[in-house]
Nucleic acid binder design. Structure first.
Lengths: 107, 107
DNA sequence: ATCCATTTTGTAAATTATTTACAATGATTG
DNA sequence: CAATCATTGTAAATAATTTACAAAATGGAT
């Protein structure tokens, strides 16, 4: 197995991140943000989940998990929730751009 | 926001993958492998989950999800389950090596 | 075809985890 | 202190998972 294969497998595993969905419990585990807080942020419209129907369990994609992590950082720095959310918007745009570039590059 | 930041954020988001844990339902959704089949593979010892205690829900890390995807490919190619598992071992070693390299590189 | 091991799939009962909604508790600022 | 913001608590209902036992497919060997 050579560098080419290794590269294909891992070097930015975009395909993987693109298909990723994670439940709220695991997001809490990953981010150390309590489920209760995640739901609150979602109620406020700061993040969005991929819930198929009312009552079904929430699913979060890479983008939103990333967003939570960034917001958490800013909160720790002392920003308010709204200010953090606003600040994160710009970085999210860049992240999305990058993801789209990689998406195109991978086919 | 510049290329440096973009790079830091995304270009192989190793930190993210390193902390990732996913429940069996979402793994099924991601990989298109039925939960029942995932449990069977685990019973056989082909994959492993990070279950804290008996009875608690299974959690899978990036490595094992990756493994399932590789095994699934080989099954589709006609290999038996055991043969697939054996064949995947080698590629998993490479993946782990790469992850370890990135781990060291990221600190 | 039959046997045999492998692999997948089904299901029920018990358990774990999540949802929703209502509310209470801190924290911060004017 | 009042008022808004942000977090946290909780109970009842629902969704999802676990475990264990079992039944089908599948495929190869004799």
């Amino acid at each position: 197995m050579d560098k080419m294969r290794e590269n294909k497998d891992l070097s930015f595993d975009f395909d993987f991140l693109d298909n990723l969905v994670v439940g709220i419990g695991e997001v809490a585990q990953i981010t150390s943000i309590p489920t209760r807080q995640i739901r609150y942020w979602e109620d406020k419209g700061i993040i969005t989940s991929l819930t198929e129907e009312e009552g079904k369990n929430r699913r979060y994609d890479y983008k939103n998990i990333k967003k939570m992590l960034l917001i958490k950082e800013l909160l720790d720095e002392g920003y308010t929730l709204d200010a953090s959310a606003e600040k994160v918007k710009k970085r999210m745009e860049i992240i999305e751009e990058t993801l789209n570039k990689l998406k195109k590059g991978s086919r």
